[in-house]
C-alpha cells in the first residue's frame, strides 16, 4: 500500500505519527480511536528486543549499549491499508492499536480527521509532559560564582 503522502517528504508525517503513537498512553489512545473498524492482524503483537547503540565519546563510532524490550505488530484493515508499530516496552495492546492507527492514518479519507482527533491531542499530552520536566529542570539551574568574583 503506497503512502498517502507527497513524494518530496514521503515519510515525515508518518514518522511523526508513529513517534506519537509509540509514546501514547494506552487508555487515551483507545478512547480517542473510539470504535475500531474491522482489521486483521498480520504479525504479532509480539515482544522482542532492540539493541540500543550509543556513540563513542557521544559522537564517534557506534557501540552496543544494551538491549531494550520492544513490542511490534502489523495489521491490515479491510480497506487494504497495512499498518506497522514498534513500541518500547511490552504492551501488546498498545502495539496493536498503534499499528491499527498507523494503517488508518494512511487512508487519505480518514487521515485529516485522525490527525486532528487522535494524533494532535496525544502529541499535546506528550509535549505537556516534556514541558513539565523542562520547567522542573529549569528551576534547578544554578549560577556558580568563583570566590574571586563574589567580591565584585
Amino acid at each position: 500500500m503506497p503512502d498517502a503522502l507527497p513524494p518530496d517528504q514521503p515519510n515525515a508525517a508518518r514518522r511523526r505519527w508513529m513517534a506519537v503513537l509509540a509514546r501514547a498512553d494506552i487508555d487515551e489512545l483507545g478512547d480517542r480511536l473510539g470504535a475500531l473498524p474491522p482489521y486483521r492482524v498480520l504479525r504479532g503483537p509480539e515482544a522482542g528486543l532492540v539493541m540500543v547503540r550509543g556513540r563513542t565519546g557521544g559522537g564517534g563510532a557506534p557501540f552496543n549499549l544494551g538491549e531494550m524490550t520492544t513490542t511490534r505488530c502489523t495489521v491490515r484493515t479491510d480497506t487494504g491499508f497495512v499498518g506497522h508499530a514498534y513500541v518500547a516496552g511490552r504492551n501488546e495492546r498498545l502495539a496493536q492499536l498503534a499499528a491499527l492507527a498507523d494503517a488508518l492514518l494512511q487512508d487519505p479519507i480518514q487521515q485529516d480527521r485522525l490527525l486532528e482527533d487522535v494524533i494532535e491531542p496525544l502529541a499535546a499530552t506528550q509535549q505537556a509532559r516534556r514541558d513539565t520536566v523542562a520547567a522542573k529542570a529549569a528551576a534547578t539551574r544554578v549560577q556558580f560564582f568563583a570566590m574571586r568574583n563574589m567580591r565584585s
Binding site: 509480539e46 522482542g48 528486543l49 532492540v50 547503540r53 550509543g54 557521544g58 552496543n64 511490534r72 522542573k136
Partner: peptide, 19 residues
Amino acid sequence: LPRFAHSLPIETATMQIRR
C-alpha cells in the same frame, strides 16, 4: 526474546535534559 533490530546510535546531544 528474539532481537528485532539494533537502534541507530542515540543522540545524547538532543537529550531532554533533567540534569
